[in-house]
Design a protein around this nucleic acid. Sequence first.
DNA 1: ACCTGAACACCGTTCAAGT
DNA 2: ACCTGAACACCGTTCAAGT
Lengths: 218, 218
Amino acid sequence: MANQKINREQIIIQALETLQKSKSFTQFSLRKVATDLNVDASTLYWHFKNKQEILQAMAAYVVGRVKIPDTNLKWDDQLKQLFSNMFDVYERYPFSAILMIETIPSDLVRLKLIDHTIGIMVDAGIDEQTANVAATSFDFLLTGLNIDLTVENRFRQQIVQNKNAEMADHVKIIHQNIKNYDLKHMQSSVKIRNQFSAKEQFEMGLDLIIDGLKKRLN
Amino acid sequence: MANQKINREQIIIQALETLQKSKSFTQFSLRKVATDLNVDASTLYWHFKNKQEILQAMAAYVVGRVKIPDTNLKWDDQLKQLFSNMFDVYERYPFSAILMIETIPSDLVRLKLIDHTIGIMVDAGIDEQTANVAATSFDFLLTGLNIDLTVENRFRQQIVQNKNAEMADHVKIIHQNIKNYDLKHMQSSVKIRNQFSAKEQFEMGLDLIIDGLKKRLN
DNA sequence: ACCTGAACACCGTTCAAGT
DNA sequence: ACCTGAACACCGTTCAAGT
């Protein structure tokens, strides 16, 4: 069918697009990527060892889009800027947060980013150990909120399209449970989730942890 | 084959055991659960709507094992105790952190736990919004570190057994990259990871966020 | 009410064979 | 060097049919 030779980069770019079209991460498959590339599925195995290696390359590609903020900024502004950039990149590539979780940061791009993050804090006078813990916290908060966001978006789309009654049921069950059992704080929790965007919520979490860091600097 | 009737609880308990035996979350399948139950795979669909519903029930079961600490304790000790309990439960049921991510907290058990967590902070005088953000941060930090831990454990086992050369390769690549590119902070990061257990790292993160909360109470 | 068997539409991966 | 085709051992899910 296809007389053009393909390379690794074309595969991961198409893979990210195919992932974007998918309804869930589970629905994403190499066979679909191959079809979109007009190529047999087995062809991918000439370029990559297995699916895991492709996921790894996809994750590295996404992280590569993250821009490092100006190192002349104040340390807390650098952190806020950096993670804001990461948030935007993750949002640009759906399911990329899941990609990060499914995957190990062994490639240079991701290792460098972690190193840089810790470096910002260490340069500000925070001890290596605390900086490490903070970097981990930031990362998981970002990833977690992003996954939540992805799930929620899918829900809304599917509910609007009446395509997925189950998801609507889930939301109903949540609200019923909250009402029936009078879970006061969950009520305000739902309100806050509707009031603020995922990014704003992430920024609030970021601020909270940064406050923790500042308390230790004093 | 099987003349015994099975019920939902037996299915989720076996499912958790079958999950435990699995080498990865992806390897876990309903067909294996059915085999372990001496039952045809289609039987499960009489008791549950689909795989997602089974995962949901498994997650609820695991969260149900978490014990709520004495409400007479100081608020920060309550939080530490609660999440320490959660950490232990997650460790007892491998892949349960992934279960939480794959799944939506719509059931009562999980909603109640979130409500309780926020309540601890609100009762201490923290505003509803900050308490919400903090609860989210705690949860993602716990989940994230737990996933990391699970992945790492599998790696070590597989490396020791020489069963998975790829994983050993990953570790080698990480170390090579760190050396070749002189990623100083990653070097200390690796050291810290070896020095402290995942639980200790989690507790450090918890302390950091609690410090952030205390700074706001002042 | 509860379970089976067969079928359907999918997967990831391998490997001989082609160009 | 790069790709195909067929095959293998898996999946989740449905549904008529059994008891």
